[in-house]
Design a protein around this nucleic acid. Structure first.
Lengths: 339, 339
DNA sequence: TTGAAAGCGCTAACAC
DNA sequence: GTGTTAGCGCTTTCAA
């Protein structure tokens, strides 16, 4: 049997109002009553009825969603799917979402950021791409007591905020192992960075660090040899690729979701022997995985990151639960057979 | 603005009671009013307030959990963890669970099964091990309109029940691929069945089928050769293992969670060159995975199966949502680097 | 500092 | 067939 506020009031010989004040620390109660009520709560183990609470509270909750704009790049569509799934699920609990998308420049970012701060949301789901600007923004959020959950990448400089996403370094480390599964005696590994970002804190750079780190940790083990080279391409498709780049290469690592660009080129030019490891289950990537051009994809479940982000806010703000502040998504290895 | 029953009643110029009857199909309403109210609902998009609904309903929900007893075998502990996590989470929504564990004999099973049927639960989470007995039991459940969700293995003979779990065949197929990653030119594959089950429908047999199927589908591809043999051991530890069994063997597939038994033997006898693929992240298995004795574990997330099973019942019975009837867990490939 | 009570939206029992 | 209403447990306001 679960005890109610009414019962507590009876047992303590006070009114419901007094019990409520004590439970919510609203003050204006005598110490005597505080002690009396707390003793009863302790003895009987009061748990608030979440249905009655929210019904009486009768408030709608507004969360802001603040993500990079999906400009022709499928990647940023995926978390939105998860967010929309969560939106549907939590609508009945009074949750509504406002979406904000910033372009890949810091002016657009700042403009929208200040709009969000002004609008007095109950919570914020945020994917920080620009490191310095994000820190400024997060500090503002802190000032106005706006609960934040970050996805995709973390900003550790501002604490007290939650993060749901990948361990980028470890995922690169994992990629190192995967590359070995199809290795030969002599391996020339090419790392291709296809990006417009310049941030030195970017996720893909941490992945590359993890990748190298794997080989450092396993130096001298086994008999296979690995040599590495890197190239950087502007984010404009495969026009910049040419056959020369791939001479002598038998292994390629693409540290972000753009591996389909390289896969397309490899397929066209019949470079079938090359092992290719990339990230994220974009439609195009999956196509080349099933084709056998891409060998491994590491999945960080961006869809679920979006869903879990909203769920985090819901649990924290509406249910007032204690939720873990950091959640690293498991690193999924995706091959043709478990896709 | 979300419309309420009260508003609908006003708009339709009927009472709340009438609206309620129409929404819940309780009958005893004139067709005229049904049409009027439905038109309004359609226009304004009524969604019931789940807080008010459950507060008024004010019922506790009792689910039965019916699983094989964990007799020294860690595997059946794991879904219970997930179930307990769900229990904690849904307690505040009025969910309570009763646990029943049956021993590995059909008499124990039947006895407890009839107890559950008598007790009039609101829902049932069930792991069917005994095929024929389970069909009988499920038919009884159907008769008394008890909603059921199955985990771990599915009984397809009785429809209208939900299933959350693995695609056993596909997971064996996947194991086939994994075995190839560390293959040489000539491979002798040993499949070790460590079990006390005799059911011809058992999960592990479907896994073996999938495993062979992979090699059939890839016959003639590549240059590696595979030969297969099988042994069956009673479920009594590694005393039955001997070095002779492993002569010439370079690959082992264990189609259930007992791979640690073989791993222990391999380690003791320094059989380091053998590739070992198994199932499930039992503590012991993980230990040997990190040790490098086990190469791959396929994870079917039994913990999450338990959690999702309870969540399914909650969503279906308390929230009255439409929930998918079959959910196949993704097949996770676990190696040292993403454990 | 405290008590009383309205009301959140829905369910279900009862009266007509 | 239909309308009325108590009550679920909590929040919040107003009065004392």
């Amino acid at each position: 049997m679960i005890i109610t506020i009414k019962k507590i009031a009876q047992l303590a010989a006070v009114s419901q109002g007094t019990v409520d004040r004590i439970i919510h620390n609203r003050g204006q109660v005598s110490q005597e009553n505080i002690d009396k009520v707390n003793a009863i709560i302790k003895e009987y183990g009061y748990k608030k009825n979440i249905f009655a609470s929210n019904l009486a509270f009768n408030k709608k909750f507004k969360f802001a969603i603040f993500l990079p704009k999906n400009e022709g790049l499928e990647y940023w569509k995926i978390p939105v799917n998860g967010i929309e799934r969560a939106e549907e699920e939590f609508e009945k609990f009074g949750v509504t979402l406002d979406y904000y998308f910033y372009k890949y420049d810091s002016i657009s970012f700042k403009k929208i950021a200040s709009k969000i701060v002004d609008k007095k949301y109950d919570g914020l789901l945020f994917a920080p791409i620009f490191h310095d600007e994000s820190i400024l923004f997060l500090n503002q959020c802190k000032k106005i007591n706006l609960p934040v959950v970050m996805i995709d990448s973390n900003i550790k400089e501002v604490d007290s905020f939650a993060y749901i996403g990948q361990d980028a370094f470890q995922s690169g480390y994992l990629a190192g192992r995967l590359v070995c599964y199809n290795s030969t005696m002599e391996n020339n590994v090419l790392i291709i960075k296809i990006t417009r970002e310049i941030e030195s804190t970017s996720v893909y750079l941490q992945r590359i660090k993890g990748f190298y780190s794997f080989f450092k940790d396993h130096e001298g083990e086994g008999s296979a040899n690995f040599k590495f080279s890197e190239i950087t391409l502007k984010d404009s498709g495969q026009k910049q690729l040419n056959l020369k780049m791939f001479e002598g290469i038998n292994t390629i690592f693409i540290p972000n979701s753009r591996s389909y660009i390289v896969a397309e080129f490899l397929k066209k030019n019949n470079l079938n022997h090359i092992v290719l490891v990339g990230y994220d289950l974009l439609q195009e990537n999956v196509k080349y995985l099933k084709d056998g051009v891409i060998d491994f994809l590491i999945n960080q479940k961006p869809e679920q990151q979006g869903y879990l982000g909203v769920e985090y806010l819901y649990k924290k703000i509406i249910l007032k639960e204690n939720v873990e502040n950091t959640y690293y998504m498991p690193l999924e290895i995706i091959i043709k057979e478990n896709c």
